[in-house]
């Protein structure tokens, strides 16, 4: 029958299929390209990124004082260490530390008195005490987490309790009296 014969296979399958393969491949590429903006839309939006760095005015913080502020919606502790606190921190043998770091490694070059750390306990995320006036600074004179008893020293390093790591130091730059965090 005339039409049945028309349904028979092509004489040159390779040549006929080429266009079909090309169309499907290009369409697949197109689909892949469309996926990118969809997935990228889930990345932080411009307003979130604009708040991704915080400026801290250091001129108001006296030696021995600390302030609590916010960085990327998380607590940030900014402390002006006294020479006594710096000496205390340097006196600790690094090998005895759970998370070995010197104070110098945890501060900006030439600004070892500025201890800028996240106010988030590295155990399970509570906000440690010690940054505010009159708060309990724990047995090591730094910060103390009331949830499970983690104690941090004057360099924000973990000395006692369940926390595995020192308080996180975010990326920052000090320009004059302004610290730009993030």
């Amino acid at each position: 029958m005339a039409i049945k014969a028309d349904l028979a296979g092509p004489e040159n399958p390779r040549r006929r299929d080429y266009l079909q393969y090309a169309a499907v491949s290009v369409a697949a590429v197109g689909a892949g390209v469309v996926v990118f903006p969809l997935v990228n839309s889930m990345n932080p939006s411009a307003d979130v990124l604009a708040q991704s760095s915080t400026e801290v005015d250091l001129s108001k913080i006296e030696p021995g004082q600390a302030i609590k502020t916010s960085f990327r919606k998380q607590p940030l502790f900014v402390r002006n260490l006294t020479p006594k606190e710096i000496a205390e921190a340097d006196a600790v043998p690094v090998s005895a530390l759970r998370d070995p770091q010197t104070l110098e490694q945890r501060t900006a070059k030439g600004h070892t008195n500025w201890l800028i750390t996240l106010g988030v306990c590295t155990h399970l995320g509570c906000v440690p005490l010690g940054a505010g006036e009159g708060e309990n600074r724990g047995p090591f004179g730094g910060y103390f987490c009331p949830c499970h008893g983690s104690a941090y020293d004057t360099a924000g390093r973990i000395r006692q309790g369940p926390a595995p790591k020192n308080l996180e130091v975010p990326k920052y730059n000090i320009n004059g009296a302004i610290a730009v965090v993030g």
Binding site: I3, D6, P10, R16, L19, Q20, A23, V26, A27, G30
Partner: peptide, 22 residues
């Protein structure tokens, strides 16, 4: 631009699939 190119390819594929089929 992409869709027009794809359009030509798809049209060609359509014609090649239906070639000789009444």
């Amino acid at each position: 631009a992409f869709l027009i190119v794809l359009g030509f390819l798809t049209y060609g594929a359509y014609r090649s699939v239906w070639a000789g089929v009444k």
